[in-house]
Amino acid sequence: MWNRISKHHLFWPLTVLAALLLFNLVYKPGFFSVRIQGGHLYGSLIDILNYGAPLILVAIGMTLVIATGGIDLSVGSIVAISGAIACLIVSRASDQHSLSIVLTAVGVALGLAIICGLWNGILVGGAGMQAIIATLILMVAGRGIAQLVTNGQIVTVTSNPYKYIGAGWLAMLPFSIFIVAAVLLAAAWLTRRTALGLFIESVGSNATASRLAGIRSRSVIFAVYIFCGLCAGLAGIILSSNVSSADGNNAGLWYELDAILAVVIGGTSLNGGRFYLSGTVVGALIIQTLTTTIYMVGVPPEITLVVKAFVVFTVCLIQSEKFRMAMTGKGKRRRAPAEREVTQHG
């Protein structure tokens, strides 16, 4: 029973997440406390869910891309582009509080994010470029596009409807949590209740064999990159809405790396094939909890990334079955009979 539990793809991610939360509880006894103020729930756990929402969205889209054997390094730039476009449209409106203006801005931003995802899909699935190179192009160019949109300045908005997307509340919880839940449920339903998930895993395992079996590999690749772009666009809108501004230079910076780490921590292999959306969500929560812990402990900003990298490295080692076997010595005991047999037979 223990072996079955320990080999589950969620066991080690959940163990690490629990360890981080326990450390925070010991360091700050009131870490788990949740209070009601003004009809809203407040607390460190609520903050982790709220501030981790954009990363979870990006990581969900990244999971499906990685499942096909690809990678998307442009998600951070798409986050910056969508936030910049949305804020620019709202800021230039005569009435920023108009709901129609906000819906138009969100629609245009998401449409542009989908186009960016389609561009990546065409380069990878249509032109046959390596995913890391194809998305690297938009990663570099997209950041420049975002700065062109904002003219190198921080675009601020005062729209209450737009601010509600990332900083609003619904049923006592941050509205961004419901956006993440809706996207996660939609992705889970499409990939686990329809044949799409099987197609994605098949393409990731062997794209050529999938094509010969009748699966339209290019269409699957187009779909996952478009979905990834859409998730990044939503994340960009939430981020810019939360602070009522858009920064083309810093918005979504390094999000692509955090998203990839969340996917890997969640148990999805970078080689493609089988994927775990639930593991990705846990991985993203680990990264956000770690970020919260670093700020709470008071780690100097200049070494924050070093501490973060070390913890993630440790988590990945713990997840490695070969590493655990080597540390416990089980690997040597298992190889011993085979080595003796080879020695006996010369």
Rank of each mutant, 00 (worst) to 15 (best):
Y27K: 11
A113T: 09
V26D: 09
D72R: 12
G30T: 03
S82M: 05
L99E: 08
A53F: 04
A105D: 01
I56D: 04
L123M: 12
N120D: 06
M62P: 01
Q96R: 06
R92D: 06
L21K: 02
Q130A: 15
L110P: 13
A127K: 03
I115D: 03
S98H: 12
A80P: 04
I133D: 06
S33L: 13
I133Y: 02
L123P: 00
A134W: 08
A93W: 02
V79N: 01
A84T: 13
L22E: 00
F32M: 11
Q130S: 14
L57G: 06
G125F: 06
Y27T: 10
L57R: 00
V34Y: 07
A59R: 09
G107S: 13
I60D: 02
A59D: 02
A131Y: 11
K28H: 13
F32C: 07
V102Y: 01
V79Y: 01
M62C: 03
A84G: 09
G39W: 11
L21R: 04
L20I: 11
G117H: 13
I122L: 15
G126D: 08
T63M: 03
V124T: 05
V90M: 05
V34F: 03
N120C: 01
V106R: 04
I36G: 08
S100A: 15
D72G: 03
G107F: 09
G70N: 10
C116A: 14
L103G: 09
D47N: 15
S94P: 00
I85Y: 03
I71L: 12
L45K: 10
H40N: 15
A67N: 12
M62D: 04
G107L: 09
V108R: 13
L55A: 12
F31R: 05
S82E: 00
Q130C: 05
Y51T: 14
I81N: 03
Y51M: 14
K28R: 15
A131I: 00
L112D: 00
I101F: 00
G83V: 03
V75Q: 10
L57C: 06
L22N: 01
P29G: 00
V124D: 04
D47S: 15
K28M: 11
V108T: 14
G125C: 08
G128W: 07
I114L: 14
L123K: 01
Y51A: 14
V75L: 07
G43T: 07
A105Y: 01
G125R: 09
V106T: 03
L25V: 07
S82L: 03
A127F: 13
L73T: 09
F23I: 14
A59N: 07
